[in-house]
Every structure is written in structure tokens, then in C-alpha cells.
Design a binder for these strands. Structure first.
Lengths: 217, 217
DNA sequence: CGTGAGATTGAACCCAGTCAAGACTGGTGG
DNA sequence: CCACCAGTCTTGACTGGGTTCAATCTCACG
């Protein structure tokens, strides 16, 4: 993982060395095809995962079929750190992915290493912070602000000038608590105001950073 | 804290013994008057807190003045477990409160005790789970469902037949991502359908549990 | 009793959702 | 190479749930 972005951002701070080592030593690399299921909702929590390459999405389905995307995970990010014995979320490969997987029990067995306990705690903390940001986004922002904020956060994680959108509109909508149509409209609107520019459907460029920052608030 | 409610509920599971002990041994009891500030947003994270008596609310203010309530904490709950060096939320006494406070550095100093590390992790996990529930609530539920769900969760934490509402309508609204008027209307509506009953402004009784459960979904 | 903050209610408005049609895109096979 | 197709995205018209603004009510507390 590159460190092109600020370290205090919980999404991008590198996982601690100890945990990283355990994953390297004991972890198994797995490949998942686009849309492949990594784990299912309700499944027992058994493993710890790190994205090596590709993008992963976690999501939750309510009994009546509404979908809520938990988060998106990129190269270097840990995921699957869920409280409770069962997964509240499922995880799927948004793109073709390589994932490093380690059994939780293996981590626990090595936990004589206090560094490691600490590392898991640290990772859980980061996760908590991400989720708290998500609450603020969902609770008190307009559709316009939600979409702008989403684009901002994507942009902050890619140093290139032209930014890739690995997920479709439906995934954005389900992350932001909106419908696909509203997301689409807001994107068009932001383009109309020349704040962002979409040369391709899944790729954009920020043309007026200040305006985008103001919106994301 | 009583254990009248199921243990797998992250809001109510008792904090682990080790952490509880540290709080008892090293913690200082503090009293806060209603609306007193326990810590401020942006303030450095220094302490760990446990509610002994009363109710605490955490909340966050955005630059343009919008308010988002993080959560409500009751007797026995730990709070102030925030990732990052600074508080993202502020905490205030919703009612007159007794809070047991311990320095984080004291906890850290004792952390040779692996039990303790584990306990902090466990508490952070529970917090994570609460926040994830909150995301689902905010992202994919109607006003009616939000209010019904809120009343449900309150009811589940009080064994009595008549349930106290320690917070005002504004706090409920800011927790649910609604306006005070909408909250009020939904309460009236639920009363009209004889699902709940409000003998007093801040006290209610559930008259049709099944209906409430269906709504909270 | 009065008083005032907090809660309810009403009416008008508006943002986002819904439903439906059409456009674009990328992939496939002729 | 291009025509076609299916999936995805965009656009439009309409609806409706929730907000806004304002007036009234309630009740806890002096």
C-alpha cells in the first residue's frame, strides 16, 4: 500500500506491523472473481481479511430486502473485523480481488504477543471511526452533499489526477442511503456546475476542489 | 447494572470484569448536573468513562451547526472509547449523573494485564456494533420505522411496564436524523394506532408489541 | 395561578423517491 | 467491422414523505 495520503486518516493508515506480519506469515492468498462472495451475512466470524489487490464491499440486507452498503475496502485495508460471533454484513469482491486470509483462532493463538492484541484493537478503532463518519453522512446531509462527500473521499485515496470509480451507481446509492436515480442526478448536477468531470462512466476528475470541499463540509 | 435483558445485546452486556475492576479501583466518581459537559468535541481523549447513574448523550456538531447525536448511555455503559487522539463527539449529562472516570494512561500502565487489553477491545467492539445498527437505522428506514425502532430499543432496556424517555424530542430527532416536528407527528400517529400510549410527555407504555416489532423490523 | 420552554398541530413547500421511457456502454457473435 | 443485445445509467414527469414556518397548546415550575 502506498502512503501518498495523510496518516491520520483511518481509512488509509497502514495496519500495524504486528498484524501485518501475522497476515504475511500465516495468511493464505485467495483470489475472488468480480461479484464473488467472500463471506455471507449470518455466517460465523472465523477469519480476518486484508485486501491485497482489488476492491471489496461489505453490505447488509434487511429482511424486507433493503440494502445498506457498509463500506468499501481497498488494497492494504483490513476487513471482517466484526464484533459478535456472527457476521452482520456480507463481503463481496467488487472487482477481481486478491485477499489475504488468516484464521482468527490463529491470531488468538499467537496473542501471547501483546503487540498483536494491540494491533487488533487499533484496527477495530479505525473501523469504528469510519463507521462514525458514515453516521454523520447519513444522518445530516443532503443528497448533494452525500454524493460530493463520497467523491471527495474517493479522490483523497487516489493520488492520480483522474480517479477511478470502482463501484456502480447502485452501490453508491446503497452506501449513501439514496436511490440510484438521485445519485445519477447529483452527478449530472455536479458536472453541470463544472465541479467534477466524467470522461468515462467510471472515471472522473475534480475540476473545482474548493467547491467540492465546501459541499462535502 | 441489572441483567434483566439478553446478554447478546451489545448495549446491555456488562463490561468485562477486568475493566470493571480497574474502574472501581482507580476510577473517580464525578457528579454532573443535567446538561453539564463531560467532555468537548475536539478535546484530547484522556479518560475512560462509565455511567454509574443517570443518562449520557454523545453528539457532534458540524461547522454549519447541524447536530448529530451519537448515542445514549445508561447505567453500566462505558463511553468515551473513541479512536484517534481527539474526541469527535462531545458528551453531556442528559440528566443529573454520576460518572466513574479513569485516566487512559492508568489503564495503559496496567495493560501488562492481557485481560485488560482484551476488555478494552471487547468494549470497542460493542461500540462498533451499536454504531453499525445506527447506520442501518439512518440509511434505510422511514421516519415511522425510525421512531418505532427507537421506542423499541428503549423498551428493551427497561424491564418496567411503563418506560421512561430520558431525552427530549430534539435529542430523539438528532439521533434519528429527523426534525422535531416529524418525531412528534410519528409519536402521535403511533398513539392513534394504539401501538403505544403516552400518559406523560416523557413516559410511555407499549400496548401492541407485535405491531411495534413489525415496524421496527 | 402566570409563565415560558418544550411539544403539538396545521398548511405550504420542496427534496428525494417512484415509475417509466430512452440512451449509453461494453461485450458477443455474425 | 459492425449490428445487436443486455445491463447499466440517465432523464423526465409525477408523487409523496419529511421539512419549514408559524400558530397554538401543554405542563412543569415559579
Amino acid at each position: 500500500m502506498t502512503l501518498a495520503y495523510p496518516l491520520d486518516d483511518p481509512r488509509t493508515a497502514a495496519p500495524s506491523q504486528a498484524l501485518s506480519d501475522v497476515l504475511d506469515r500465516l495468511g493464505v492468498r485467495m483470489n475472488y472473481a468480480k461479484d464473488g462472495e467472500i463471506y455471507a451475512q449470518e455466517e460465523e466470524v472465523e477469519f480476518l481479511y486484508r485486501v491485497v489487490d482489488g476492491v471489496v464491499r461489505t453490505m447488509r440486507l434487511t429482511c424486507d430486502g433493503r440494502r445498506q452498503v457498509g463500506d468499501f475496502y481497498y488494497a492494504g485495508d483490513l476487513f471482517g473485523l466484526e464484533p459478535g460471533p456472527d457476521h452482520q454484513f456480507s463481503a463481496e469482491a467488487l472487482t477481481d480481488c486478491t485477499i489475504q486470509v488468516v484464521r482468527r483462532s490463529a491470531v488468538r493463538a499467537l496473542a501471547g504477543d501483546r503487540e498483536l492484541d494491540r494491533a487488533v484493537l487499533e484496527a477495530t478503532r479505525r473501523e469504528l471511526q469510519r463507521v462514525q463518519e458514515h453516521v454523520l453522512l447519513l444522518g445530516r446531509k443532503s443528497a448533494r452533499e452525500k454524493v460530493a462527500g463520497f467523491l471527495m473521499s474517493l479522490a483523497q485515496h487516489q493520488s492520480e489526477d483522474s480517479i477511478q470509480l470502482p463501484m456502480g451507481r447502485q452501490d453508491m446509492a446503497d452506501y449513501l442511503g439514496l436511490t440510484i436515480e438521485t445519485v445519477s442526478r447529483m452527478l449530472t448536477q455536479l458536472q453541470g456546475e463544472e465541479i467534477v468531470e466524467f470522461p468515462e462512466l467510471r472515471r472522473f476528475r475534480v475540476t473545482r476542489w474548493e467547491a467540492l470541499e465546501d459541499l462535502a463540509a
